[in-house]
Amino acid sequence: MTQEQYILAAQPNNLQRPGCAPVYPVGIYGWRKRCLYFFVLLLLVIMIVNLALTIWILKVMNFTVDGMGNLRVNKEGIRLEGISEFLLPLYVKEIQSRRDSPLILQSDRNVTVNARNDLGQLTGQLTVGSEMVEAQCQRFEVRSSNGERILFSADEEEISIGTEKLRVTGIEGAVFDHSVETPHIRAEPFQDLKLESPTRTLTMEAPKGVEISADAGELKATCRKDLQLQSTEGEIFLNANTIRLGNLPLGTATTSLGLNVPKQTVYELCVCPNGKLYLSPAEVGSTCHSTSNVCLWS
């Protein structure tokens, strides 16, 4: 061993050897480490809470592969079961209920169904309110169950009823402000048919004739003033076993001496020039001219 080597070996160890670099610790220590662990733990708690809330929402809303809750998505479209509420407008092509249940559209105020054309203009509207049902369209139709026959139709020109029988069950019957055109008016079986105009006249006209028939009952015509049976070209034909004209005035027959003719029970029917009928006591000859006082005062 040389002298220099001996001297270096004999020196204390606290002296750093020249040529050795200082050593520094590697990692996160102290408050930085504690903050990192805290944020990692907080993130883990948030993830667990989010996962729990997601599972709870899926459970409550009944999410499945086919849909959500009462909403089911299939090949034909969307199916809703139970009560559904829409807060915004709903645009669909067709709304159809199940085969074993009705379709109910309910609103606190009214239900309005609108139909529009390609330009967005309103062409038809149906409003169901608390006081009335209003339909606004060019033509309103009610068809039979098979859709072949029109039962009721209404437009600006006319109203048509296509049923075989029109029944009015009100006590006052049917009230028409203007004329009525119909080929047949018939009452129910075992019921009376009554045509009445309390404050005006009742007129029945037909180009080829008016037929009034009561096969199982009587025919009664009552008015306050004049009852007119008029035929411009034909005749008025009364065909019955018995024809009675009640409340006809009785003419007074007088002789040339001014003596009254004795009372009797046989009379003849006389007609004044103005068409008024009256009774005259029957004799061997006609007494209509001698009882002309009825014609004079009529």
Rank of each mutant, 00 (worst) to 15 (best):
residue 2 T to N: 15
residue 3 Q to E: 13
residue 4 E to P: 00
residue 5 Q to M: 14
residue 8 L to F: 09
residue 10 A to D: 06
residue 10 A to F: 10
residue 19 G to P: 05
residue 19 G to Y: 03
residue 20 C to P: 03
residue 22 P to S: 15
residue 23 V to C: 10
residue 24 Y to W: 15
residue 25 P to S: 14
residue 27 G to A: 12
residue 32 R to C: 04
residue 32 R to P: 02
residue 34 R to M: 08
residue 40 V to Y: 06
residue 43 L to S: 15
residue 44 L to S: 15
residue 45 V to H: 06
residue 48 I to N: 14
residue 51 L to Q: 08
residue 57 I to S: 05
residue 57 I to W: 12
residue 59 K to F: 14
residue 61 M to V: 06
residue 62 N to W: 11
residue 65 V to C: 02
residue 66 D to S: 11
residue 67 G to D: 01
residue 72 R to S: 05
residue 73 V to T: 13
residue 87 L to H: 09
residue 92 V to P: 01
residue 94 E to S: 10
residue 94 E to T: 14
residue 96 Q to E: 13
residue 97 S to F: 07
residue 98 R to H: 14
residue 98 R to A: 12
residue 99 R to I: 11
residue 100 D to Y: 15
residue 105 L to F: 15
residue 105 L to G: 00
residue 108 D to A: 12
residue 108 D to E: 14
residue 109 R to K: 13
residue 113 V to S: 08
residue 113 V to E: 09
residue 114 N to C: 11
residue 119 L to C: 09
residue 119 L to A: 13
residue 126 L to W: 03
residue 127 T to S: 00
residue 129 G to H: 06
residue 130 S to P: 00
residue 135 A to W: 08
residue 137 C to E: 05
residue 139 R to I: 03
residue 140 F to R: 02
residue 142 V to Q: 08
residue 142 V to H: 00
residue 144 S to K: 03
residue 153 S to Y: 01
residue 158 E to T: 09
residue 159 I to A: 08
residue 162 G to M: 05
residue 170 G to K: 04
residue 179 S to V: 05
residue 179 S to T: 07
residue 183 P to D: 01
residue 185 I to R: 00
residue 188 E to Y: 02
residue 190 F to T: 07
residue 193 L to G: 10
residue 194 K to F: 06
residue 196 E to C: 01
residue 196 E to D: 10
residue 199 T to W: 13
residue 200 R to Q: 14
residue 203 T to I: 13
residue 206 A to T: 07
residue 207 P to T: 07
residue 211 E to H: 10
residue 214 A to M: 03
residue 218 E to V: 06
residue 219 L to Y: 03
residue 221 A to T: 07
residue 224 R to S: 05
residue 238 L to W: 12
residue 239 N to G: 07
residue 241 N to V: 06
residue 242 T to D: 12
residue 243 I to D: 01
residue 244 R to C: 00
residue 244 R to W: 04
residue 246 G to W: 06
residue 247 N to G: 04
residue 253 A to H: 02
residue 255 T to E: 04
residue 255 T to Q: 05
residue 256 S to K: 15
residue 260 N to C: 01
residue 263 K to T: 04
residue 268 E to Y: 03
residue 269 L to E: 05
residue 278 Y to D: 02
residue 278 Y to K: 00
residue 280 S to T: 08
residue 280 S to Y: 00
residue 280 S to R: 03
residue 282 A to D: 01
residue 283 E to R: 15
residue 284 V to E: 14
residue 286 S to V: 03
residue 286 S to W: 08
residue 290 S to Q: 12
residue 297 W to A: 15
